[in-house]
Amino acid sequence: MSIINISSDVYEEGRKIAQKTAEAMGYAYVGREILRGVAEKYHLSETKLVDAIDKAAPTLRMSLKLRKQLMAYIQEAVLGEMLKDNIVCQGLAAHLYVLGVSHVLKVRILIDPEERARNYAQTHNMSVKKAEKLLAREKKLRQQWSFSEFRFDETDPSKYDLMVSLSQIDPDEAVRIITETVCSRKFQPMNYSEKCLKDLELAARVRVLLMDKYPSSRVQANGGNLIIETLGLTREKRKREAAIKELAENIPGVNYVEVHFIHDFFRQAAESFR
């Protein structure tokens, strides 16, 4: 009765561990396979969705805005899966947006950077030094992006419950450690953590709905109550508030909507302490 979220610098390594863990626990494995459904639902290409998760920096093909939109679709799908409970989630960047839910065990699989550079150099046919430089740059760009988008530094160990270094611990051993850890009562779902997860899922659904028209909106849910922050000009205020309220109130699970115009001084300050 838990959720295990596995993230890693190298997708393939994370995937191996996640699948083995799912097998060992008898949980469902939720990986990039769910992106097909998302792609079909929103008429997108699957590779673009993968790029939105993987790529370090905005590319010519993908602006920051588009990436934000794609991430919103992915979030909606992933959080929907998570509500089902008993899953191992991997490769969907869930460590960036599933925060503060006590029954989600956050695992980071560490790959020795030198080994990674060697492998990268081999597969991409380049010198190890060049690969090292390339990967370091990519890491930095990714850090910048995740921080600007999610206020989250994914290399910060304090953001995870468990870090497993594959250069020191065999995959089977890693799976054993993960399964043992997740069995602790600490990672069992409870009223509060389920509520937190439901809130995140509802917020994600609302965000997707607002994405087209009001991409700058920020959504917070609290037990069916929505607080939506949106940036805009004062003259639009009344119209915008009404439009957002109408959109959001029709979403199942929503019973109250509050729209905050411009930026909220208090919450900004409070959020800086999360």
């Binding site: 503060g100 006590s102 009562r185 600490k186 990672f187 069992q188 409870m190 953590s193």
Partner: peptide
């Protein structure tokens, strides 16, 4: 979250 986990 930390308090919830401690209690659990």
């Amino acid at each position: 979250m930390s308090l919830a986990r401690e209690a659990m």
